[in-house]
């Protein structure tokens, strides 16, 4: 592809991590700008206009969530979180604040690149939504609201379809329980996690080969769901 090389701003205080992430990203043809702390990171993000921001949640000077909120006031650039914190709550807060995805430390170069590619691809596509999405043996015709599996029409309920639509709209992005409940059922259902879980189960039974080992509608335990084509 002859696209201009995408630029990435990486905010991470640990030098050795910056080093290998930079090596991995440059291997992918990205231009990488490093920042050691949150303030510098915000400046880099403002001046470089990157296609992606990689952010360590545990910064020395600024809470990662503050960084995200600040950045989100003026930019929609995808944000990939690196987190060594072990509680799911931190991730949920970061995602609800506007982060797109997260990686839990330690992570390998392979996982990192997979996430980066997914986020850059989504960024590149912009608004030209493809009316036809395919994954596995399923084909979703968004324009006509038809779902086919092996060429046969699959009947989905209104709620199932709305849920599927949300997942398909953000491939690779982790959508929190809270977000999905609010978007599908409305704000009064935000505490009704079991509804969401049941409907995701229905979707898996209708669309996945083995619902107990899903390949496309993935669970991020304690956080939310992610669609992967």
């Amino acid at each position: 592809m002859s696209e201009p090389s995408p630029s990435v701003v990486m905010v991470e205080d640990e030098k050795q991590i910056r080093r290998f992430v930079r090596a991995a990203l440059e291997g992918e043809g990205c231009r990488v700008f490093e920042a050691e702390n949150g303030k510098q990171g915000l400046i880099e993000a403002a001046t470089r206009k990157p296609e992606l921001v990689i952010l360590d949640l545990g910064l020395p000077d600024l809470d990662g969530v503050e960084f995200i909120r600040d950045l989100r006031t003026w930019s929609t650039v995808p944000i990939l979180i690196l987190s060594a914190r072990s509680t799911e709550n931190d991730k949920i807060i970061a995602l609800d604040a506007g982060a797109d995805d997260y990686l839990t430390k330690p992570f390998g170069v392979g996982e990192l690149l997979a996430r980066v590619r997914a986020l850059l691809r989504r960024q590149g596509k912009g608004n030209e939504a493809n009316p036809l999405v395919t994954f596995g043996d399923v084909e979703v015709d968004l324009a006509n609201r038809v779902v086919r599996r092996h060429g046969e029409v699959i009947r989905l309920t209104q709620i199932e379809y709305r849920l599927l639509g949300l997942l398909l709209a953000s491939p690779g992005k982790v959508l929190t329980h809270r977000y999905l409940l609010r978007e599908v059922w409305g704000p009064t259902f935000i505490e009704s996690n079991h509804y969401l879980r049941i409907y995701v189960g229905h979707l898996r039974h209708k669309l996945e080969v083995d619902p107990a080992q899903p390949k496309h509608i993935l669970t991020e335990t304690g956080v939310g769901y992610r669609f992967q084509a």
Partner: peptide, 13 residues
Amino acid sequence: RTPLTALVGLADS
């Protein structure tokens, strides 16, 4: 976890 992350990542690199 921070040094372990560096270790895994650098080995991958």
